[in-house]
Structure formats: C-alpha cells, structure tokens
C-alpha cells in the first residue's frame, strides 16, 4: 500500500515538475511576444510615414508634411555636448574613487551617494535642471541647459560603469608598472586606463542610449515648443526626438499617431546602431589587447 502511495506521489511530482517547467517557459514567451508585438505595432503604424520627407521636414499641423528634422538636430546637439561634458567628469571621478581615494568615511560617502543618485527618477533631474540652469543661472530653456541636466542624469551610470571597468583590470598590472619604477599616476594613465577603455566605452554608450530616449527631464527643460528652425549654437532653444514623439502621440488625429510611430522607428534605429557600435568597439579593443 505504501509503495503504491509513494508511486502515485512520485508520478504527481513528475507532472508538477513538467507543469512548472512549462509555466516558466510560458512567462518568457510573454516577454518575447511583447517585444515582437511592440516592434510590429510600431512598424505597422509608422512605416508608410517613414521616408526622407519625414526626416528632412519641420513639424507641421498637417501630417503629410510634418517631419522630425528640428528634433533630430536638437537631439544631436544635446547629446554631443552631454558626451563632451560627461566623459571627462565621469572617468575622472571613477579613477579617483578606484585608484586614488583612501578608504575614508567621506570617500565611502561619495560612493554611496553616487549609487543613490543613479536611482533618482529622471523627472527629478529635469525639474532640478530647470531650477538650477534655466532659472538660477538664467540660461533660459536652451540646449546648454538641456545638456547639463542630461550630464547630471547619466553621470552616475558612467561613473559606476567606469569603476567596474577599472576594477576589472588585474591588480598585477599596477604592481608591475610600479615595480618598474613608474609613479602611480603614470601607471594609471599608461597602464590602467588603456586596459579599462573597452569597459568604459561600452558603459558610456549605454548611458548615451539611455539619454537619447529620455523624454521627461527634457520636457521639464525645453517645455512644449514648436520649433521650425535648426539650432545654431548651445544657447538656442531646442526640442529633442522623444519630446517631439510625445507631442505627436498626444495629438488627437490618427495620422499623427503614424507620424509618432515613424519618429519611434528613427529613434530605435539610432539606438540600435549605437549599441551595435558599442559591441563593435568592445570586440575591436579586445582583439587589440
């Protein structure tokens, strides 16, 4: 009797095991299906609007002639200045924290502080950027204010990624350089940094692709503007692609949904190329080393 009982139990457990396995696989399928549905939805809505006319035109009240040119250039302006500002600041901070900072209470506080900054919602950076750059420093709602805000937003990501990259460099590299008589600074500049570059670069590109897609903080800086000119310098007013896309989404006409989807296609293409570039760079550096 007991054997029969344990036999059925055994079979039951085998069944449950299979069901659990199926359920887990099913959950992953949902995630995968969502991704497919998302891509399909966007291509389906936006493909017929996605042409050169769309990329090369300014926004308009008429969907047939509306385009994303001003926002595309705005995005490029904001991103370039953000990159110029955030790379040196981010890498220097990471270098200091990993290579030169003693394990004092204050330095530990800086590290903890950076990891907390990484968790601050982006809209908070937006309103702080508005208070500091737009209002306090009287810059107005210009590209530079947007770039500075974006820099603050992605700095924690860049710092943490660079710290990880620097940590990955085996400690005997430093020891060997020091043993050959180099100073710590020389060792860091000539040995550690070249070794850490692949990690730093991929962290940086990850941060940039996050920044390109950020809408909320840019809305706080730039507000909803109707821009039909190309910005010529960092002190011009601007709009960026996610704001323009949001603007089109919130229009009531169906055609503008299509235009929004076309904008999303362009945004996703840019993100995809950025990420492929990151992978390419990583491979290139890995081969070189």
């Amino acid at each position: 009797m007991t054997t029969a009982n344990s036999d059925t139990k055994f079979k039951l457990r085998e069944k449950v095991d299979k069901i659990v396995n199926l359920f887990l696989g099913f959950s992953i399928l949902i995630a995968f299906a969502t991704l497919l549905a998302l891509v399909f939805d966007i291509l389906n809505d936006g493909w017929k609007w996605f042409d050169w006319q769309f990329i090369n035109s300014y926004p308009s009240r008429k969907p047939e002639i509306a385009g994303i040119k001003a926002a595309l250039f705005g995005t490029m302006w904001v991103m370039s200045i953000t990159a110029l500002l955030s790379i040196p600041i981010g890498v220097c901070t990471a270098l200091y924290l990993e290579m030169f900072a003693d394990d004092t209470r204050f330095n530990r506080f800086i590290k903890l502080n950076i990891s907390n900054l990484a968790g601050v919602p982006s809209i908070i950076y937006g309103i702080i950027g508005m208070a500091v750059f737009v209002e306090f420093f009287q810059m107005g709602r210009v590209i530079l204010a947007g770039s500075l805000t974006m820099t603050l937003l992605i700095l924690p990501i860049i710092i943490i990624a660079s710290q990880e990259a620097i940590k990955q460099v085996p400690s005997y590299y430093l020891d060997a350089a020091l043993a050959l008589g180099s100073t710590k600074w020389q060792a860091v500049v000539k040995v550690i940094i070249p070794q850490a570059i692949p990690g730093i670069v991929s962290g940086f590109i990850l941060a940039m692709s996050r920044a390109i897609g950020e809408s909320a903080p840019m809305i706080a800086i730039s507000a909803l503007v109707y821009i039909t000119f190309l910005p010529e310098g960092p002190l011009d007013r601007f709009t960026v692609m996610p704001i323009q896309i949001y603007n089109w989404i919130s229009q009531p006409q169906d055609d503008f949904r299509g235009i929004a989807a076309a904008g999303i296609i362009l945004l996703l293409i840019m993100l995809l190329s950025l990420n492929s570039f990151a992978i390419f760079l990583r491979d290139y550096f890995q081969k070189r080393n």
């Binding site: 995630a31 991704l35 998302l38 966007i42 390109i212 897609g213 999303i264």
Partner: peptide
C-alpha cells in the same frame, strides 16, 4: 531579449500601451 526590453525608451512603451 531582456537587454533590448530594458533599453527601449519609455515614451515608446507609452505609445505601445496607448495604441496596442
């Protein structure tokens, strides 16, 4: 796949929510 899902801008998710 998870990395791609994590990298999609939130405004795109918003569009997906509203239109799909």
């Amino acid at each position: 796949i998870l990395e791609v899902l994590a990298g999609i801008p939130t405004v795109v998710y918003g569009y997906f929510a509203l239109t799909f």
